[in-house]
Simulated scan of single mutants.
Amino acid sequence: MDTVTRLEHDCAQAWPALVDEPLGQWRMRAAGGFTGRANSTLTCGDPGVDVRMALRRAAGFAERNGIRPTLHVVIGTALDSAITRLGWTVNLDHPGGAESLVMTGPLAPGEHEGAHVDDTPSTPWWELTAGSGRPTPAQRHVLSSAAGVGYGVLERHGQVVAAVRGAIVGDLLHVARLAVRPEYRRQGLAVGLLKTLYSWAHAKGATRQALQVAEHNVAAIRLYEGVGCTEHHRYRYWIPC
């Protein structure tokens, strides 16, 4: 596989959908509507059939699983250039943003007071990363069913004020769901928590990181640039016209 395809598949491995069916090298994914990545067909690699047939199968899979037909397409690929002619359009109304950056970088381990990484997610961790201490089955599967997941939290005055999810695939740390309570933002806590997560991952053999962030989320992009990440490539979500 080329570098982009391998990275996309590693990220998909770190973010498991409830249903994940192969179509050649494509991955048709569904997770009850929780997140775009887990409810789209990853179109990296060879689908093993004619592209028009592959698109029909992806749409059929989505309909069978009760989600909107959606394709996850890397910008600049052959499919990205041809997909408009095949009857699909960019989903400009996608709740997470139509276009995302995949950023990569080295690990810069460190420590921060009050920060640690747990082997199991706590109720406060769920509250910050999923919006509720009682996650849905889809949320629980996507965020906590994979092997090699760490649940980072940072505490102040006995309260969890920041949380993050890290999943290790090979030597790659996949970073996701970073959240800081509004009243604790702009205090360097996100960076401190990330560095603590990097230490945890480094001890388990990770040497690099990757993450996905919506192109409109400028603050998050600047944060990740500050810990050494740069843009690797971009992808967009497409839906039938």
Rank of each mutant, 00 (worst) to 15 (best):
D2Y: 01
R6W: 09
R6L: 13
R6S: 15
D10N: 08
C11I: 11
A12C: 09
Q13M: 05
W15V: 14
W15T: 12
L18Q: 15
L18M: 15
D20T: 06
G24Q: 10
T35K: 04
T35I: 06
N39K: 10
T41A: 14
T41G: 14
L42D: 12
L42Q: 11
D46Y: 05
G48F: 02
V51N: 11
M53E: 15
M53T: 15
L55I: 09
R56V: 09
R56T: 13
A58H: 06
A59Q: 08
N65P: 15
I67H: 13
R68G: 15
R68A: 15
P69D: 14
P69S: 12
T70C: 15
L71T: 13
V73E: 15
G76Q: 06
G76E: 12
L79V: 11
D80I: 02
D80P: 12
A82L: 09
R85E: 14
W88S: 09
W88D: 11
W88I: 02
L92R: 13
L92V: 14
P95W: 05
A98E: 14
E99H: 09
S100Q: 14
V102Y: 07
M103T: 04
M103Y: 04
T104V: 07
T104G: 08
T104W: 00
P106K: 00
A108S: 14
E111P: 09
E113R: 01
A115N: 03
V117E: 06
D118E: 11
S122L: 01
L128Y: 03
A130M: 02
G131Y: 02
G133V: 01
R134N: 15
T136H: 12
A138I: 08
H141P: 13
V142K: 04
L143T: 08
S144R: 03
G150T: 00
Y151R: 01
Y151P: 10
G152W: 00
L154D: 13
E155C: 07
H157A: 14
G158P: 05
A163C: 05
R165P: 09
A167W: 00
D171G: 08
L173S: 09
R177G: 07
L178P: 09
A179T: 05
R186S: 13
R186W: 04
R186A: 13
Q187N: 11
L189H: 07
V191D: 09
G192N: 02
L193C: 05
L194V: 03
L197Q: 12
Y198M: 07
S199L: 02
W200P: 07
A206F: 00
Q209Y: 02
A210Y: 01
E215I: 07
N217R: 03
V218I: 04
A219Q: 06
I221W: 02
G226C: 03
V227E: 05
W238R: 07
P240V: 08
